[in-house]
Computed example of a mutant assay.
Amino acid sequence: MFLMGCTPDVQTFNDIIHAFCKVNRTHEAARTGQVEEARALLNKVPSPNIVLFNTLINGYVMSGRFDEAKVVLYDGMLGNGCEPDVYTFNILIHGLCKKGRLGSARELVNEMEIKGCKPNVTTYTILIDGFCKEGQLVEAGDVLNEMSYKGLSLNIVGYNRLISALCKDGKVLKL
């Protein structure tokens, strides 16, 4: 692009960062290197936006590198004046649930609300899925009740996950 006298825009950077974060997810060494290249590229973007940061944070979370994702959030994103949105929080909550850190995921939902970012159906579905995978059906039910109290309805993905977990736990009659 530069050789042809064309300057990349934010979308160009996002496409490349997205590709780096998605490439070779099955091979750990390649995945780690690619996410690092995405981070190096993000550091060269003149005015990075929330989409770029979310893409990189997701790349780290999907690589199992939650601590690096938090560094990008706190040092990169907040350092550049970008406030996390519901997508940012959902990525991080998903990463915590994936690691079995459900208490931390629950705390992050509370933190996002304190910061004025309202959890959405996807946020709660991620939590319910995490609790179901860990066999913590009472906690999953608590999340469902919290959703209902806030006027949100579970989506089909959440219901399927909950029904599957109840069936596996022998609680078919509770349905």
Results as ranks from 00 to 15, higher is better:
residue 1 M to N: 11
residue 1 M to F: 03
residue 2 F to S: 14
residue 3 L to S: 14
residue 3 L to C: 02
residue 3 L to Q: 15
residue 4 M to C: 12
residue 5 G to C: 10
residue 6 C to H: 03
residue 9 D to N: 15
residue 10 V to A: 12
residue 12 T to N: 15
residue 13 F to I: 11
residue 13 F to S: 13
residue 14 N to Q: 13
residue 15 D to N: 13
residue 15 D to M: 15
residue 16 I to N: 14
residue 17 I to Q: 13
residue 18 H to A: 14
residue 18 H to S: 14
residue 19 A to L: 14
residue 21 C to Q: 03
residue 21 C to H: 04
residue 22 K to M: 14
residue 22 K to E: 15
residue 23 V to D: 00
residue 23 V to M: 12
residue 24 N to W: 10
residue 25 R to W: 10
residue 28 E to K: 09
residue 28 E to Y: 05
residue 34 Q to I: 00
residue 35 V to D: 05
residue 35 V to H: 13
residue 35 V to A: 06
residue 36 E to L: 11
residue 40 A to W: 00
residue 41 L to G: 01
residue 42 L to D: 01
residue 44 K to W: 00
residue 44 K to Q: 11
residue 48 P to A: 05
residue 51 V to I: 13
residue 51 V to G: 10
residue 52 L to C: 08
residue 52 L to K: 09
residue 52 L to D: 04
residue 53 F to D: 10
residue 54 N to E: 06
residue 59 G to D: 04
residue 59 G to C: 08
residue 60 Y to L: 02
residue 60 Y to K: 06
residue 62 M to I: 05
residue 62 M to T: 12
residue 62 M to S: 03
residue 63 S to Y: 05
residue 64 G to T: 11
residue 67 D to F: 09
residue 68 E to F: 04
residue 68 E to A: 14
residue 69 A to V: 05
residue 70 K to W: 04
residue 72 V to F: 01
residue 74 Y to E: 14
residue 74 Y to V: 14
residue 75 D to C: 07
residue 75 D to K: 13
residue 76 G to H: 08
residue 77 M to N: 04
residue 79 G to P: 10
residue 80 N to K: 15
residue 80 N to S: 15
residue 80 N to Y: 02
residue 82 C to T: 12
residue 82 C to E: 05
residue 83 E to V: 15
residue 84 P to G: 12
residue 88 T to Y: 02
residue 88 T to L: 03
residue 89 F to L: 00
residue 90 N to L: 07
residue 90 N to E: 05
residue 90 N to S: 06
residue 92 L to Q: 09
residue 96 L to H: 12
residue 96 L to A: 07
residue 97 C to W: 04
residue 98 K to Y: 00
residue 98 K to H: 01
residue 99 K to V: 07
residue 99 K to M: 07
residue 99 K to L: 01
residue 100 G to E: 13
residue 101 R to T: 03
residue 101 R to H: 04
residue 104 S to I: 00
residue 104 S to P: 02
residue 105 A to R: 07
residue 106 R to G: 02
residue 106 R to C: 09
residue 108 L to W: 11
residue 109 V to K: 01
residue 111 E to C: 00
residue 112 M to Y: 10
residue 115 K to N: 14
residue 115 K to H: 06
residue 121 V to E: 00
residue 123 T to R: 02
residue 125 T to C: 03
residue 125 T to P: 08
residue 127 L to N: 08
residue 129 D to T: 01
residue 129 D to A: 05
residue 130 G to L: 02
residue 130 G to A: 07
residue 132 C to V: 02
residue 135 G to Y: 10
residue 136 Q to E: 12
residue 136 Q to I: 10
residue 138 V to Y: 11
residue 139 E to D: 06
residue 144 L to G: 06
residue 144 L to I: 05
residue 146 E to W: 11
residue 146 E to P: 07
residue 147 M to L: 06
residue 149 Y to S: 10
residue 149 Y to P: 00
residue 151 G to R: 00
residue 153 S to C: 15
residue 154 L to V: 12
residue 154 L to F: 07
residue 154 L to Q: 01
residue 155 N to F: 07
residue 155 N to K: 01
residue 156 I to D: 11
residue 157 V to R: 01
residue 159 Y to V: 15
residue 159 Y to F: 14
residue 160 N to H: 05
residue 162 L to V: 13
residue 163 I to K: 03
residue 165 A to G: 02
residue 165 A to K: 07
residue 166 L to R: 12
residue 168 K to A: 01
residue 169 D to K: 13
residue 169 D to I: 11
residue 169 D to C: 13
residue 170 G to M: 12
residue 170 G to I: 10
residue 171 K to R: 15
residue 171 K to W: 04
residue 173 L to G: 06
residue 174 K to L: 15
residue 175 L to V: 07
